[in-house]
Design a protein around this nucleic acid. Sequence first.
DNA 1: CTGAAAACCGTACCGCAGGTACAGCATTGG
DNA 2: CCAATGCTGTACCTGCGGTACGGTTTTCAG
Lengths: 215, 215
Amino acid sequence: MRKGNETRERILDIAEAGVLAKGFGATSIDEIIAEAGITKSGFFYHFRDKNELARGLLSRYRGRLEQLLDEIFGRAAELSDDPLQRLLIGLTLFAEHMAAMPGGHPGCLVATMSYQDQLFNREVRGMVTSIVEGWNSFFRAMIEAIIVVYPLREPIDAGRLARHIACAIDGGIIMGKSLGDPTVLPEQMLMARNYVKLMFQPAALHALQREAVAA
Amino acid sequence: MRKGNETRERILDIAEAGVLAKGFGATSIDEIIAEAGITKSGFFYHFRDKNELARGLLSRYRGRLEQLLDEIFGRAAELSDDPLQRLLIGLTLFAEHMAAMPGGHPGCLVATMSYQDQLFNREVRGMVTSIVEGWNSFFRAMIEAIIVVYPLREPIDAGRLARHIACAIDGGIIMGKSLGDPTVLPEQMLMARNYVKLMFQPAALHALQREAVAA
DNA sequence: CTGAAAACCGTACCGCAGGTACAGCATTGG
DNA sequence: CCAATGCTGTACCTGCGGTACGGTTTTCAG
């Protein structure tokens, strides 16, 4: 009775590859079942419709990304006690991780679906929204921790800086896809990192520029 | 013989609204012709297939956005001779323009299509790429003009800063769409503006933070 | 070993979408 | 007036998402 879960995972694997490569709408069920070696009935045994497939994909994706973020920023926490350094180190590790992916980042499932959200029902759309909110909260929490330690004369808006990081990443994914250039994403992650650094360490500007040129 | 062009434009108008609201794949030809009051044959008289419709949409979109950018940054050029101020003013005007749009920004045709590029042929995909490259070049040229006047000890990479502006805008559009929050886009445009300011005027950090909080 | 649930297979069918083919009709500028 | 231009109408094809439903195999608990 665990064979069912194996098949379900195989369907999700094949579907995920298809969606990232071609988009959700262009990834047909016929195509998935052909590659999985099952029949249409088999597919609909596991997923009532394509919306449930989308939910399954998003659920897995969220879990994996959460795990990756935990690993990366957990490692950053090992390397420094300072909340600012943790964020900076984490973003660098994140960028390096993306740069190391063979063939570049495969694409963001959430961004893909967000731009095809008309294909889905409210439940799936709600999932997309909540995942994006989760990312924002994640970065926001880190920035708020920095603000506690780095009391500035004027408080900065943690929310918009957190959103900026997420926007830069999403935008980097899109632009990388549009230009066919896998270096754009890690580059823009580092740009976001440098923004954070500038916000909290204005004196470090020139050192930062040296870094940017060297990279 | 100009009636043909009128119909063609009407088709493009209806299609554009549909694509921005629901995505390209979910905007059916049947739906377009119903709203335009023509028949399927009439549609295919103007557009050989959906790819040609996409090309028509992108072509119009590129032209309009070019015009908008010219207007906004032309106005900025009237307001200041300084290349840095021109970019900063232009980005502020741009953000204000987006914020003023009723119901928020309708969405970026290029980003939409970039994430559904599997639906299109190489010609359309090439158009998407070249439009994105055009935006990058636009901002890059402005940044290079700034670098001439603001000679820094260490040169900064104009390309990646230009791409960052475009990424922040695209990311802002996506996040605004995902969260259903039209304020994200103008907010992130101003974040990009502040980044530029920080890169060239590190001393102005605290003034900038005051701005960010006031906004 | 057995029996019932789980995990499928096979077949047939439906509606919608994109697209093709082609004949014909109406308007309009030269 | 006549030839493009700008359509209409009809018929048809393919592929996709999805439904329905009966039959078969696999798996594990008792």
